[in-house]
Computed example of a mutant assay.
Amino acid sequence: MATKSLKRTVRTAVAAGIAAAAIAIPAAPAMAAPVTIPGIGTFDVPDNLAIPTTFDVPQMPQVPGVQIPELNTGSIGDVAAPFSNGDRVADGALTKVGSPYVWGAAGPNAFDCSGLVYWAHQQAGLNVPRTSQAQAGGGIPVGYNDLRRGDVVLFYGGASHAGIYIGNGQIVHALNSSQPVKVDALGSLPFHSARRYA
Rank of each mutant, 00 (worst) to 15 (best):
G77E: 10
G77T: 10
D78F: 09
D78R: 04
D78C: 06
V79T: 04
V79I: 11
A80S: 10
A80N: 03
A80M: 05
A80E: 08
A81C: 08
P82F: 08
P82W: 05
P82M: 05
F83I: 07
F83L: 03
N85S: 01
N85Y: 04
N85H: 05
G86S: 06
G86N: 03
D87W: 03
D87V: 07
D87H: 12
D87S: 04
R88V: 09
R88K: 15
V89K: 01
V89R: 01
A90G: 07
D91R: 01
G92M: 02
G92H: 01
A93P: 02
A93N: 02
A93W: 00
A93Q: 00
L94Y: 04
L94I: 10
L94V: 07
L94W: 06
L94S: 03
L94M: 13
T95D: 04
T95C: 12
T95H: 13
K96T: 03
K96H: 13
V97Y: 06
V97A: 08
V97L: 05
V97E: 05
V97G: 08
G98E: 07
S99Y: 05
S99N: 05
P100I: 13
P100F: 12
Y101D: 02
W103I: 11
G104R: 08
G104L: 11
A106Q: 10
G107I: 09
P108T: 13
N109A: 13
N109P: 03
N109I: 10
N109K: 10
N109Q: 14
A110S: 14
A110P: 04
F111H: 02
F111N: 00
D112M: 03
C113D: 06
C113V: 08
S114W: 11
S114P: 14
G115R: 01
G115K: 00
G115I: 00
G115W: 01
G115E: 00
L116H: 01
V117N: 01
V117K: 00
V117W: 00
Y118N: 04
Y118I: 04
W119K: 01
W119A: 05
W119R: 01
A120F: 07
A120R: 02
H121A: 11
H121L: 07
H121V: 08
Q122W: 02
Q122I: 02
Q122K: 11
Q123D: 09
Q123S: 15
Q123R: 13
Q123T: 12
A124V: 07
G125E: 09
G125F: 07
G125D: 04
G125H: 09
N127M: 05
P129E: 13
P129Q: 15
R130Y: 07
T131P: 01
T131G: 06
T131D: 07
S132H: 02
S132E: 03
Q133I: 09
Q133T: 11
Q135E: 14
A136P: 10
A136Q: 10
G137E: 13
G137H: 14
G137V: 06
G137R: 12
G138Y: 12
G139D: 08
G139I: 06
G139R: 11
G139H: 09
I140A: 14
P141D: 13
P141E: 14
P141T: 09
P141Y: 11
V142W: 08
V142S: 15
V142D: 09
